[in-house]
Amino acid sequence: MNAKARLAAVLPARPHGESGWVGRVLTTGVVIAVLATARPDDHRVWIVLSAGLALFMAGTALMATRKHVALGLLTAVAVIGAATAGVDDSNALALVLVAVSDIAVMQFLRDGVVRGNRPIVAATICTAAAYAVSAWWFGHPDSWFFSQLLWTAVLIAFGLNRRQYEVQARQTEQLLEQSRLARSEHARAAALEERGRIARDLHDVLAHSLGALSVQLEVAEALLEERGDTAGALDRIRRSRRLAVQGLAEARNAVAALRADEVPELSHAIAVLAEQHENDHGTAVRLTVLGESQRSESGVTVALLGAAREALTNAAKHAPGQAVDVELAYGDGVRLSVRNKGATSGEGFGLTGMRERLALVGGTLTAGPDGDDWLVVAEVGDE
Rank of each mutant, 00 (worst) to 15 (best):
residue 139 G to F: 11
residue 293 S to L: 05
residue 132 A to E: 00
residue 3 A to K: 13
residue 351 L to R: 11
residue 287 L to A: 01
residue 161 N to Y: 14
residue 127 T to E: 08
residue 35 L to E: 12
residue 186 H to D: 08
residue 309 R to T: 08
residue 80 I to M: 14
residue 65 T to G: 10
residue 329 A to N: 02
residue 360 L to N: 07
residue 152 T to P: 00
residue 187 A to Y: 07
residue 244 A to W: 06
residue 114 V to M: 04
residue 309 R to Q: 12
residue 191 A to H: 10
residue 319 A to R: 14
residue 83 A to L: 15
residue 165 Y to A: 09
residue 116 G to E: 12
residue 314 N to A: 12
residue 376 V to A: 07
residue 296 S to H: 04
residue 270 I to H: 02
residue 381 G to E: 14
residue 189 A to K: 03
residue 324 V to I: 13
residue 158 F to E: 00
residue 185 E to M: 05
residue 313 T to A: 12
residue 81 G to S: 05
residue 280 D to L: 05
residue 192 L to M: 02
residue 238 R to G: 07
residue 39 R to N: 12
residue 179 S to P: 00
residue 120 I to S: 07
residue 321 G to A: 10
residue 276 Q to M: 01
residue 6 R to L: 15
residue 196 G to P: 04
residue 282 G to H: 04
residue 43 H to E: 11
residue 128 A to T: 13
residue 249 A to T: 10
residue 253 N to Y: 00
residue 177 E to S: 03
residue 127 T to S: 14
residue 301 T to P: 02
residue 337 S to R: 10
residue 119 P to T: 05
residue 56 F to T: 01
residue 28 T to H: 08
residue 146 F to E: 10
residue 323 A to E: 07
residue 337 S to K: 07
residue 213 L to Q: 07
residue 153 A to M: 01
residue 331 G to Y: 05
residue 326 V to I: 13
residue 112 G to Q: 09
residue 369 P to H: 09
residue 229 D to W: 04
residue 160 L to F: 06
residue 374 W to Y: 11
residue 318 H to M: 08
residue 233 A to I: 03
residue 62 L to Y: 15
residue 362 G to F: 06
residue 324 V to G: 07
residue 315 A to R: 11
residue 295 R to W: 15
residue 232 G to W: 11
residue 336 L to K: 04
residue 337 S to T: 14
residue 228 G to P: 07
residue 200 R to N: 03
residue 114 V to N: 04
residue 121 V to F: 06
residue 7 L to G: 04
residue 152 T to K: 02
residue 3 A to S: 13
residue 145 F to A: 08
residue 156 I to R: 04
residue 120 I to A: 06
residue 6 R to G: 05
residue 14 R to P: 03
residue 32 I to H: 12
residue 152 T to H: 02
residue 61 A to R: 10
residue 8 A to G: 03
residue 310 E to N: 13
residue 300 V to D: 03
residue 310 E to A: 13
residue 43 H to P: 14
residue 199 A to Y: 11
residue 361 V to G: 08
residue 47 I to K: 05
residue 17 G to H: 13
residue 166 E to S: 06
residue 380 V to Q: 04
residue 22 V to H: 08
residue 74 L to M: 12
residue 70 A to H: 14
residue 60 T to G: 09
residue 258 L to H: 01
residue 269 A to K: 01
residue 334 V to W: 02
residue 9 A to S: 13
residue 30 V to S: 10
residue 364 T to L: 14
residue 245 V to S: 02
residue 133 V to L: 13
residue 258 L to V: 15
residue 74 L to A: 11
residue 377 V to R: 09
residue 360 L to G: 06
residue 311 A to H: 03
residue 30 V to L: 15
residue 78 A to N: 01
residue 219 V to Q: 11
residue 383 E to A: 11
residue 200 R to W: 01
residue 112 G to D: 15
residue 234 L to D: 09
residue 368 G to P: 06
residue 340 N to V: 09
residue 351 L to Q: 12
residue 232 G to T: 09
residue 339 R to N: 01
residue 296 S to A: 07
residue 338 V to Y: 07
residue 120 I to F: 10
residue 320 P to L: 04
residue 167 V to P: 02
residue 325 D to V: 06
residue 44 R to F: 15
